[in-house]
Amino acid sequence: MMQDLAVTASTSALSPIALFLQADVVVKAVMIGLLLASVWTWTIILSGTISLSSALRKSKALAAEFWKSEDIDKFYDGPGRQDVPAAKVFSAAVSEWRRSVRTGKPVDREGTRARLANAMASAAAGEIDRLSDRLNILATVGSVAPFVGLFGTVWGIMRSFTDIAASQNTSLGVVAPGIAEALFATALGLFAAIPAVIAYNRLLHKISKIEGHLHRFGDALHITLSRELERA
């Protein structure tokens, strides 16, 4: 009767924990997986945002400090040894410079220029690789989590249809809780995927900014060093 139906509808609580506990084993596994993916995603988002911001800030500060400094060797032994992307590029250039110029033999200018450029480019690429290490996880979660959630939903709805067939009862009180549980899996999938996609694009943009900065710094350094090479 109507009253019974209303009662059964309101007694089935819609809190996330209740939905999780009522769900099927497969749906439970999907939910746990998506929750872990979400936690991992947010770990990467938070730590990635912090580390990329500080990398960009410190690189810019180091570059500005470098252009003000008088002595390259002194700078190399001081701030140049920091764990900063621009410092890595700088130290790669200086160590290559020392190896090429301080040999005692006549300096091969063209070869030294090429080696300097290669050393700086590879140092910058290594830094970018290190910074963008976690981005692939964000991309994977962003594209796969909705499908995983959808799988959980389809499975849950299949299960609730089986229950309907078994109980021979098509009233909403029988159908609704199962479908609500099933839809919760899709909600979790989207919950994990949306921040992942947004953060992926944001972090990618930040990394490309750092990359541009490193390349510009490397080019300027290369120009300065090759000018020095003319005098050597």
Binding site: W42, T43, L46, I50
Partner: peptide, 22 residues
């Protein structure tokens, strides 16, 4: 990685809080 411990802690706390709120 080394800066990820804090991020992991923050995200776990955030998820727990959201779950409790919901």
């Amino acid at each position: 990685q080394k800066g990820e411990g804090a991020g992991f802690g923050l995200s776990v706390i955030g998820h727990g809080g959201l779950l409790a709120l919901l």
